[in-house]
Amino acid sequence: MRIFLAGLRKLLKRPASIVSVGLLVGLLGLIIIASATVGQSADDPEDGFAARALVTFPGAYDFVLSFLFGLGGLVAVIYGAAVAGSEWSWGTLKNAVARGESRARYMLGTFGAIVVMIGVGLVLSFVLGVGLALLGATIAGVSTAGLSDSDTLARLPAMAARGWFSVVEQASLGFAIATLARSQLAGIGAGIASYFGEGFAAIFLPDIVIHALRGGPGGRRHRWRPWRRWARRRGRRCPLR
């Protein structure tokens, strides 16, 4: 518990914590203000409608949350790697171990603090994001009546919890890689690669798998021999055909 609390105190004072929240809120603010301005002055009614939708409540809640949980994942990977890597590069982990502290306990306590800090950062960013969306609604001349939409407000905690969990998952990836590699840079690099790799994989991997199984576009033969053998033994056809 001492390590966890000390970790929290350290992270609260760490410039990276403030920069991370500032980055998220700053980008969100730019998008909201730009959308609100477009929504107010667009010549094309369809463009204006789409832009105003971002700052119209209750939909604005979803937009703010999805933005924070999307880009927040990337920021979290970097944050987790930076915190874990700096324990090696600054030699502060060495100090703790030389005082008789367990490495595992120290790193777990530090990660626990990161998990809480991510929660605090997301809540803060969400509050500021909603404030910015309200400002955007005012600029775009959109009603804010949906702000107190009870259905949306009721499902917000569950959405926030799920989003927080996914962001923590990203942070744990950066943290784990930096800890194993004993390097901030390795953690950040691998974390970013994995973040984007996951996105690309989600888009392209299903097609690549199907393509490989069918033996190319319109291919008639399975190139994936293990499946062919398995299918032949059971007298089945490939479901992808």
């Binding site: 001492r2 609390l5 004072k13 600054w90 030699g91 100090n95 030389a98 005082r99 008789g100 502290e101």
Partner: peptide
């Protein structure tokens, strides 16, 4: 046992006292 191994290592963004406090949270 108290130790100073290699170069002194601290969090650069914390004050001297805060660093000692963070270190005091570990070990004995």
């Amino acid at each position: 046992v108290g130790a100073l191994v290699e170069s002194p290592s601290f969090y650069p963004y914390l004050s001297g006292r805060q660093n000692l406090s963070a270190l005091a949270a570990t070990g004995a």
